[in-house]
């Protein structure tokens, strides 16, 4: 690893790096709490929305500025593969905390899901159907990586697009599921199961969206991705497999078991 690390190469000159993008993203992040508090604590949702908008715009500017800086200076030194694996440990613990909390409420309960849960909740059939999309997308992204390794850029892009479409279908399906449930009066406030159901599927869904953003980003990088410079592709792949793995847990714990009254 260290041998391919550019920082270890001995330069005649040493260059000072300044970058404004972290500061931009930091500012964007500072606006989020204000947006939230405007909407919920100080009951002026319009200002909340406005601040969210500004924050998202800043965030996008920051991310794209950052990325183009890294790529224009050719600084992909191959470390983000390891970094993403380390980051995934942290993500696993995030879900661990949520699932831990779920078990904590579920195990001592005499009836689970609680009695006031509607009959057809959780909607297992739809979830199984959506699983097909998400699980097969793990395969398609793997094919995309193999194409890239062979230098087949057209094939790489094609399979990546397919992965993105599958992911999008999953998210759309889940949004429909949520809308249906809420329409029938099953919400976060219904009971402890509703609370955990929406929170855990929501957390997972937001991770799918992050994965999709990463993939779209890779697609936009276009010709900067080559057989040799593809760390970001690998990292995106790892992340996507992780999101899929978590889905298997979500599917078993939030759909299959509760469906059978466990």
């Amino acid at each position: 690893m260290s041998s391919e690390n550019a920082l270890h190469h001995e330069h005649e000159h040493h260059e000072v790096e300044l970058s404004v993008w972290p500061l931009v993203i930091g500012l964007a992040s500072l606006l989020i709490p204000f947006a939230f508090m405007a909407a919920f604590q100080w009951s002026s949702p319009v200002i909340g929305l406005l601040l969210t908008g500004v924050s998202v715009v800043l965030l996008l500017i920051g991310c794209f500025g950052w990325a183009s800086e890294v790529y224009s200076k050719n600084q992909d030194v191959g470390l983000s593969k390891i970094a993403i694996l380390i980051f995934i440990i942290s993500e696993i613990l995030l879900f661990g905390g949520l699932f831990g909390g779920y078990f904590y409420n579920m195990l001592p309960a005499e009836v689970w899901p609680p009695a006031n849960t509607p009959d057809h909740v959780p909607p297992l059939g739809l979830a199984l159907f959506l699983s097909i999309f998400l699980l097969s997308s793990s395969g398609t992204i793997h094919v995309a990586e193999m194409k890239l390794e062979k230098g087949d850029m057209g094939g790489f892009k094609g399979w990546l697009c397919l992965t993105i479409i599958l992911g999008l279908l999953f998210i759309i399906g889940q949004a429909k599921e949520w809308a249906g449930l809420i329409g029938e009066g099953f919400t976060v406030s219904t009971n402890a199961f509703g609370t955990f159901f929406f929170t855990i599927t929501g957390f997972h869904g937001s991770h799918v969206i992050v994965g999709l953003i990463l993939q779209i980003f890779v697609l936009l990088l276009g010709s900067r991705i080559t057989k040799k410079s593809h760390t970001i592709v690998k990292a995106t792949g790892y992340y996507w497999h992780f999101v899929d793995g978590i889905w298997l847990l979500v599917l078993s714990l939030m759909y299959i078991l509760p469906y059978y009254g466990i």
Partner: peptide, 22 residues
């Protein structure tokens, strides 16, 4: 550890402002 703390306070946020029952 930090992600678990983040989960703890996120659920607090939901309970306080979004009507969940954690």
């Amino acid at each position: 550890g930090v992600p678990v703390l983040a989960a703890a306070v996120t659920l607090l946020l939901f309970d306080r402002y979004l009507g969940t029952n954690f």
